[in-house]
């Protein structure tokens, strides 16, 4: 019964989105459905937070491997939530100077802003920067001319890597204007705009059709495997 209700709801939400896209008087319906999803997702935050606390408290109480990290997670989670909710260090807004809590939680100078600027920002930037190291390691290990296709890929990689920096100008900047299309920076641009673009378009078309077909099957209840247990 629950499964049938879920499928009915899926159909109604999907059909509303499709109809609202084409039928003018129903255009706001699609926005409403999207809003419902946002409301659900917002409520699910509470569920997520409760689950996070539960998982890490259990790890802490059972002293399982890595329980020390759970302590850090719980402390950071609690402290951030507390300073955000209580708006620690936030001054009231100019428009309502006498109203407590009227300022934004992440206003400059607040405790939340401090955590954002000096903890979250550098930590996430560091994680993103790790990519440079992993790309180098992956390139060394995997980028080998094992066959003709791989060799072509290798040459393309060299052109793009050099063409997207000043090395391209240094190495091929001497070429006369009539041969300027052979300069590394121009070759890199051509690769990006012509070859990569063409390949991307083909992949995108395949993906778009895949998305449309999957959505249709889910909407009509033909594909129910995401609910588990197959049809």
């Amino acid at each position: 019964m629950t499964r049938k209700f879920a499928m009915l709801l899926t159909f109604l939400a999907g059909a509303t989105m499709v109809v609202s896209y084409f039928i003018r008087p129903t255009q706001s319906w699609g926005e409403d459905v999207a809003e419902w999803f946002n409301v659900l997702a917002a409520i699910a935050f509470v569920l997520g937070a409760a689950n996070l606390a539960k998982v890490h408290l259990e790890r802490l109480s059972s002293r399982s491997a890595g329980w020390g990290y759970s302590v850090i997670v719980l402390l950071a989670f609690g402290a951030t939530m507390l300073v955000g909710l209580l708006k620690v260090g936030v001054h009231p807004q100019e428009l309502a100077p006498t109203v407590a809590f009227s300022g934004e939680k992440d206003a400059s100078g607040s405790a939340f802003w401090w955590a954002y600027s000096y903890a979250m920002s550098p930590i996430t930037s560091t994680m993103f920067a790790l990519l440079a190291f992993f790309v180098a390691s992956a390139a060394f290990r995997a980028f080998r001319a094992k066959n003709t296709e791989a060799a072509l890929l290798l040459v393309t990689a060299f052109v793009v890597l050099l063409g997207r920096t000043f090395a391209g100008v240094v190495l091929t900047g001497w070429m006369p204007e009539s041969l300027s299309f052979l300069r590394l920076e121009n070759l890199a641009t051509t690769i990006l705009e012509v070859f990569a673009s063409a390949g991307n378009r083909a992949i995108l078309i395949g993906i778009a059709i895949g998305v449309a077909a999957t959505s249709l099957k889910i909407m009509l209840g033909i594909d129910r495997s995401y609910l588990g247990g197959g049809s």
Partner: peptide, 11 residues
Amino acid sequence: RSLVMTAAREA
């Protein structure tokens, strides 16, 4: 995402 957790559990 919390909703993905719920759906994954169901599945």
